[in-house]
């Protein structure tokens, strides 16, 4: 891992996203430096997921600028594909390809998009399956896997591209409670490896143990941005207090 104090890998400046007249993101600024784990929390419908999709160029934006590794992220541009290859995305609903086995899901993009040899990719994929503790499930189809297993395959799929940034969009929200732990453990290990991560989640415990920064979003704006311990123990903003109160005592 690089030790230089490093320019941000991701820089978001004055981001505005609207659907028609409805403003979803209303002027967000955010820098993420390499190795940082940034956890975004906030009530649903406040633009957290949309923010991730904008970073990946899946949504066009109405204002501001997103820069990833010194390249502007522009949806529908020619350069967006190259940027997406360096960003791994994990979705709430997994979005595994149902017609492919777990292993084939992991291998598809490295082989077809990056043009790597299937043999090498398979070796790497096997390693990733060990990392997510699913080596025995590599040949199962998504429909044969539990939610927690599917999400771990999805993580392996993202890792297979050797991404420089991992984005998690509520990765445990669609899971049964008993499988949440397996997924969080894998994510924690990734953070310890020094991966750069942007995580939207309601798991405050994960934020506290793993996060370097915690961001509270509400109404399309960043309301508070501080180290997790500090925000959880001593939220400055009233809305942060209310939100954390509601999910901590749940």
């Amino acid at each position: 891992m690089s030790t230089e104090p490093a320019s941000p890998v991701l820089r978001i400046e004055g981001l505005v996203k609207r659907y028609g007249a409805h403003v979803v993101i209303d002027g967000v600024d955010l820098d993420v430096v390499p190795g940082q784990v940034v956890v975004i929390v906030g009530p649903s419908g406040t633009g957290k997921s949309t923010l991730l999709r904008c970073v990946n160029g899946l949504e066009d934006i109405q204002g501001g600028r997103i820069t990833f590794e010194d390249q502007p992220v522009l949806a529908r541009s020619r350069t967006v594909h190259a940027i997406r290859r360096r960003i791994g995305m994990i979705f709430q609903s997994f979005n595994l390809y149902p017609h492919l086995t777990a292993l084939e899901n992991v291998m598809l993009a490295p082989v077809k998009v990056l043009g790597e040899s299937a043999k090498e990719v398979e070796e790497r994929a096997r390693g990733l399956f060990r990392k997510v503790r699913l080596e025995h499930r590599a040949h199962a189809f998504p429909s044969q896997l539990s939610g927690g297993e599917q999400q771990r395959v999805a993580i392996a799929r993202a890792l297979a591209m050797n991404p420089h940034l991992l984005m998690f969009d509520e990765p445990t929200s669609a899971l049964d409670p008993e499988t949440v732990g397996d997924v969080l453990t894998v994510m924690e290990e990734l953070a310890l490896e020094g991966r750069t991560m942007l995580v939207v989640t309601h798991e405050i415990g994960f934020a506290r143990h793993v996060g370097d920064r915690m961001i509270f979003m509400d109404g399309g704006k960043i309301v508070e941005d501080s180290p997790p311990e500090e925000m959880i123990a001593n939220p400055r903003n009233l809305r942060t207090q209310q939100f954390l109160g509601s999910i901590l005592h749940h």
Partner: peptide
């Protein structure tokens, strides 16, 4: 979601 997952792995439309 399938389109999004595929796009976010860097595939082009035809891929």
């Amino acid at each position: 979601g399938q389109w999004q997952a595929a796009y976010s792995s860097g595939m082009r439309y035809d891929q």
